[in-house]
Simulated assay, not measured.
Amino acid sequence: MGTWDIGHFDNDTAADFSGTIDDAPEAGRAAVIRDALVVAIEADYLDSDEGAPAVAAAALVASQCPGGEPVTTAYGPDKPLPVLPTDLRPLAVKALDAVLGENSELRELWDEAGDKEWAPGIARLREVLVAAAG
């Protein structure tokens, strides 16, 4: 995993995911985000190449929630997102639960690196989504 920082888009896989969103027609961008979330939710063991897009997708969903932070990184999608369906919010929460879970390679990699900032950043993102999901 080519990772350069703790941000939700600060790795090669998430940056590539942003390109996939940009390549999709505007009407299909929400489906790309939904697919990334569902892959994470349904995985028995969440590979980091599946976890990183799920985190990025959750950040995009959260950016449209009250209290959510806009995605301003150069590694996020360049093209505007449509208003995302609100049913993505609980999916994003479940995907982040999978990313932080015991069967997540992404969590394992950050734990092994001894990082103390990545997981709290994911938890803050989750809090925004939980509040918005009702």
Score class of each variant (00 low, 15 high):
Cys65Leu: 03
Ala119Pro: 03
Leu60Ser: 04
Leu91Met: 15
Pro90Lys: 11
Trp118Tyr: 11
Phe17Val: 02
Asp5Asn: 07
Asp5Ala: 10
Gly19Trp: 07
Thr72Gln: 07
Leu88Pro: 01
Leu81Val: 06
Asp97Asn: 04
Ser63Gly: 15
Glu108Cys: 06
Asn11Tyr: 03
Ile6Ser: 14
Arg89Gly: 02
Leu125Gln: 08
Cys65Asn: 02
Gly121Ile: 08
Gly28Val: 01
Pro80Asp: 08
His8Val: 11
Asp47Glu: 15
Val128Glu: 07
Arg34Ala: 15
Glu69Leu: 09
Asp115Gln: 11
Leu91Thr: 04
Ala57Asp: 06
Pro80Tyr: 07
Pro53Leu: 05
Ala131Thr: 08
Met1Lys: 04
Leu37His: 07
Ile6Met: 08
Glu102Ala: 15
Thr3Ser: 10
Val93Leu: 00
Asp35Lys: 06
Ala98Cys: 06
Pro53Gln: 10
Arg34Phe: 09
Ala54His: 12
Ala62Trp: 13
Lys79Cys: 08
Lys116Pro: 00
Gly19Lys: 11
Asp115Thr: 03
Asp5Ser: 10
Glu102Trp: 05
Asn11Met: 08
Asp111Phe: 12
Ala27Ile: 14
Thr86His: 08
Glu42Ser: 08
Pro25Tyr: 05
Asp16Pro: 00
Leu84Trp: 02
Ala14Cys: 01
Glu69Met: 05
Ala123Ile: 13
Thr13Lys: 11
Leu129Phe: 02
Gly121Asn: 13
Ala74Leu: 12
